[in-house]
Amino acid sequence: MSEMRPPRFLSKQDPAPSRWSYRYQRLMLTPMFRLALRFGVPFAISLSVGLVYFADQGRRDSFNLAFADLRAEIKNRPEFMVKLMAIDGATAALGEDIRAVVPLDFPLSSFEFDLEEIRQNVAALPAVKSARIKIKSGGILQIDIDERQPVAIWRRLEGLSLLDREGVAFRRLQSRHERSDLPLIAGDGAAEELAEAMQILAVAAPLQERLRGVARIGERRWDVVLDRDQRIMLPEERPVQALQRVLALDTARDLLGRDVTVVDMRVAHRPTLRMSDAATRERWTARATEVKVEDQ
């Protein structure tokens, strides 16, 4: 058997690679080929496997079903369920309104909410200044409301409504007496100039007992309306100062206590008074008397 062994000098030869192994190694050292092998082949295999598997309609349906089941199962886990809605910072009436615009049947999965849409719905309510919505732990849909605070009542042809600081009419009122603590503002365009009206009202505080409200006339100037149909007509420019002048006159001469129907301050250098008919007649009588006395 020993002659079958290859001669010793052959076994000592260093092993040269065969032509094909040499070529194979060169191929494997080609950068593009390596890249293709590393990414292209796995991609192609997984793609073809996927295509072959999903070529069958039944498999596709069962996969979709299983996927939908899995989705529903995760969605309906108790950790994700929202059980109630909490509203903070709103009055009871507003709370009712909010529950009306957010018609949700609790419990619901938190995946089914579109919080932004709910927030916009809530914020679209006129009485809501801004709203923040979040889902708190424990399955609570928390709605934090910044409600509009009424500062005045606005009387228009359509009826009474509440105004907030920004001049937004946000709620109808049936009667003035519902909120008799708030000042009354009338006239078209009054809401836009609410800040000025509030200044005038603040200055008119000494007349609080007699003040009926302020009225916007012709959407350009203000009237202060007192009881006994008295009216102080203020100019377009610097109405507050004009009112202060009237108040000074009132303090000095008790102007408003007299039988005057209109104090017209519209022309600053010529304040004008309009007296009532009775007072005018009285004055005429008095003047006639004076004339007689002089004649005598």
Binding site: D14, P15, A16, P17, Y22, R26, L29, P31
Partner: peptide, 15 residues
């Protein structure tokens, strides 16, 4: 030549 080139390529890790 194949042996030498292959070994050098392997060391350089480039074709």
């Amino acid at each position: 030549i194949r042996t030498a080139v292959q070994a050098a390529q392997k060391m350089a890790n480039i074709r």
